[in-house]
Design a protein around this nucleic acid. Structure first.
Lengths: 229, 229
DNA sequence: TCATCAATGATTGTTAACAATTTATGTTAA
DNA sequence: TTAACATAAATTGTTAACAATCATTGATGA
């Protein structure tokens, strides 16, 4: 199960971002990574190049690699793209969901609800993302799946930056209703619910109070101060 | 206008693929590239990693980098994804096309027609791709634009592998009608025409006679021999 | 003649040392 | 105290040499 060091690093960074352990703006030093994963810097750099190509990290010349911090405009673009992709995914998933898929999704929702009640935000985020990716898997289009994977990753960063208190868990029973439509094979309803769900998610954002992205210490000690313009 | 060597290489490879000078399966040797672009192998490898992340080249361990050869299934996925993206792009472009955009697109079509009549296939492919990318630019969503850029690139490879004689230029006046709808601001019609256009393109493919992909020399010297399964 | 195998050449992968740049630290002067 | 400047440390970028792997060629034997 052990991949190349490059893939290991990429997977680890993506997992960390998906659970919001790595916040937007975090620096990914080459030496730190090569120490952590016990490999040489060449592998680290390839991994960072891959992550940069996925727009999950940003490579600033002579500065290093940083987790991206999506702007409000980028956030809008990403949600718009997600609606385009997930609309199509919904339509194609409707036809070919098996019984096993439905039970898997129900279980996923249950776990997500549990995580939310337990206050386990990393697990909640990971499971919510997994829900959307599972639908993409059912649709069976690898291209759409990969694109959506990238966008859900960036959505997690967006939520970390712009989510309001009430916004992020308005999706309470929406996932449930989505599975209902999937089970019923109602493509139109499924597509409609998916669109709606994403609109609700986006509506829960606020770009007026940008949680600042800093060098880790300052915002943990001094709290939010608007630094980025 | 001179970027980093990495970006130069990436751009050059993408241009070559977009004009079908680099066919599917072509090998991209590290030394060959570092000689061509007068840089060290480290830059070449980063460039190849980026191209691999865009799924334009494939990195086979200990073998090297090769231009991908899309399978029929991948071709279907790619067209499905393109319809999803370009449908949304069409809807959003309809609202905000300026006069300059229209004249630019008309000129683009004229050049494409001219290239087709002159039998200049590379130019024709490049201009056709440019047409679709210009629409994406008008829509103003960078995410959709980048995704479509990747898919049009891979579409060029698909056409090189599976295009039939009559199929590739059935698009004769379809681009024209698309601009008509865009100019009229008719979002529904624009979306419909775009869908139709992509369906026609896909319908012009044939997966029964796979033009074989070889090590550059063989198929240029010996002609098509079915090697890939 | 054909298949198998060994040796050679070419290509990719890895590593370490060095150079260039940025960031942090400390000092000095107003 | 603050600002500007100089020094030192840390980080990224580059290069070259070496190791490992793969492809090709030629030889050997049935």
């Amino acid at each position: 199960m052990s991949d190349s060091p490059e893939d290991t690093i990429v997977a680890a960074v993506l997992d960390a971002v998906a659970e919001q352990r790595l916040p937007a703006g975090a620096k990914l030093g080459e030496q730190a990574l090569s120490d952590l994963f016990e490999c040489n810097r060449a592998n680290v750099r390839r991994a960072l190049a891959s992550l940069a190509a996925q727009h999950v990290v940003e490579l600033r010349p002579n500065r290093g690699a940083f987790v991206i911090t999506p702007s409000p405009k980028e956030a809008r673009d990403i949600f718009q793209a997600r609606r385009a992709l997930e609309h199509t995914i919904a339509r194609h998933a409707a036809g070919q969901a098996k019984k096993a898929d439905i039970t898997y999704l129900r279980r996923n929702i249950a776990e997500e609800t549990q995580a939310r009640r337990a206050g386990d935000k990393p697990a909640e985020l990971r499971l919510s993302r997994q829900f959307h990716m599972s639908l993409a898997g059912i649709a069976g289009n690898k291209v759409l799946e990969r694109f959506l994977s990238e966008l859900t990753m960036r959505t997690t960063l967006i939520l970390g930056l712009y989510a309001t208190a009430g916004g992020s868990h308005c999706a309470e029973d929406e996932h449930d209703r989505i599975v209902d439509a999937l089970e019923a094979g109602d493509a139109d309803e499924l597509a409609r619910l998916t669109d709606e769900h994403l609109h609700h998610l986006e509506a829960g954002l606020s770009f007026k109070t940008p949680k600042p992205v800093g060098s880790n210490l300052r915002d943990q000690l001094l709290g939010p101060v608007a630094t980025n313009m």
